[in-house]
Amino acid sequence: MRQFVGSICLILTLLALSGCFHSTREAQRWTLQPDGVTSFSLSRDGRFALIASTKQGILLWDLMHNRQLAELGDQDPDKNTVIASQISDNNRYAITATSQNFAVWDLAWGTSEGLWSISDGIIRDLDISNNGQKVLLGLSNGKALFVDLGTGRRLEFLAHKEKVNSVSLSPNGKFALSGGNDHNAYFWSTESGQILNEFPHEHRITRVELHRNGKYAFSADGDDSAIIWDLATGKPQSELRMFHRHSNFSSARFSDDGSKLVTGTPGRRVEYWDSETGSNIGRWLAEEQQNTRPPSAVVYDVAIDPTGRIISGTSAGIAQAWIAEN
């Protein structure tokens, strides 16, 4: 009997804890593509969504008014699958990529600025500056490739020894952050190629992110280390206090003032963090894609809207707004 009572108490405790691990305050939902998408990017303020699917190509949505703004079509004539995308910090431009080429879009006019091919590696991640002319690519051959499309200038950052998994570019295009399988994240100048800070990890790095004003950098590896770095000192500001072992981040974004960080994972989790302390201040589970087996969703992008709501966009083709209860 004593063992039975002990088991019941343990089950009740676990249930209570699981209830604490995830909030339930979904404020709004937008089902943009029920059959799922291969890429989903949000604007910094969470208003615009750029999605790509095999059925409809690339679409631009206004989430605030819940309407489709533009149908951009397929990225290339062969209708290759778009695997990554990013909207510029000022919402004006976007970049999308297949494994071998990338396109830049003027979102104000809904037109393509051009299509460029990559011949010496597979594109794994990308970013774009506010003027739509400076782009950063993370490649499978260990290169972080910076290109100024206006001048044709090309800089190959060669510090990484293995695949570059994640990149982030400052809005003005002057600074870059890259992380790869070699366990290192580098903060570097796109003008000189010089390394400004090095952030080592014990495992391969899966996600990096720059604060828009250069206050912080974020790097996370494929094990249990996710660190917010103070770029002024090059030292850790905080380490995320994670509940799940071996967390793997698929997206990350700082709030405008840098005081908060929101992240997404391949396993549906959307989480909200205090940058100063690394404390978790909100966590949610995104809606699953029902026509997959088993049902799942990758959180492709996250943002914070002007009212403080957390916005997530997933492979299920669904955007959701969450309210942090703090």
Score class of each variant (00 low, 15 high):
94 A>I: 03
238 S>E: 03
309 R>W: 08
132 G>A: 04
134 K>I: 15
126 L>N: 00
26 E>T: 10
208 V>C: 00
98 T>I: 13
59 L>D: 13
265 T>Q: 07
224 D>F: 11
249 F>E: 01
118 I>N: 07
304 I>A: 05
50 L>K: 02
135 V>I: 11
202 E>N: 15
110 G>S: 06
50 L>G: 01
299 V>D: 07
249 F>H: 01
99 S>V: 14
271 E>Y: 02
57 G>T: 02
119 S>I: 11
323 I>F: 02
10 L>S: 09
253 R>S: 08
92 R>V: 15
298 V>A: 07
8 I>V: 15
87 I>E: 02
72 L>N: 03
15 L>G: 14
63 L>C: 08
215 K>N: 09
102 F>L: 08
233 T>D: 02
117 S>Y: 13
321 A>R: 04
46 G>Y: 05
203 H>L: 08
270 V>N: 10
141 N>F: 05
320 Q>P: 12
38 T>V: 13
163 K>T: 13
319 A>N: 06
20 C>D: 11
118 I>G: 07
123 I>L: 06
234 G>L: 03
7 S>E: 15
313 G>R: 01
14 L>W: 10
71 E>I: 07
226 A>T: 08
79 K>Y: 14
84 A>E: 02
243 F>E: 13
105 W>H: 06
254 F>N: 05
17 L>I: 15
142 G>T: 12
68 Q>R: 04
132 G>P: 07
213 N>T: 15
7 S>F: 15
59 L>R: 06
236 P>D: 00
72 L>M: 02
201 H>W: 09
146 F>T: 10
296 S>L: 14
203 H>T: 10
227 I>Q: 05
185 A>V: 06
31 T>Y: 02
87 I>L: 01
115 L>H: 11
212 R>I: 15
215 K>L: 14
11 I>S: 07
74 D>Q: 12
303 A>M: 11
163 K>A: 11
326 N>C: 08
290 Q>A: 14
207 R>G: 05
18 S>H: 15
46 G>W: 06
222 G>E: 15
257 D>E: 11
248 N>P: 04
16 A>R: 06
196 L>E: 05
55 K>I: 13
104 V>T: 13
189 S>W: 09
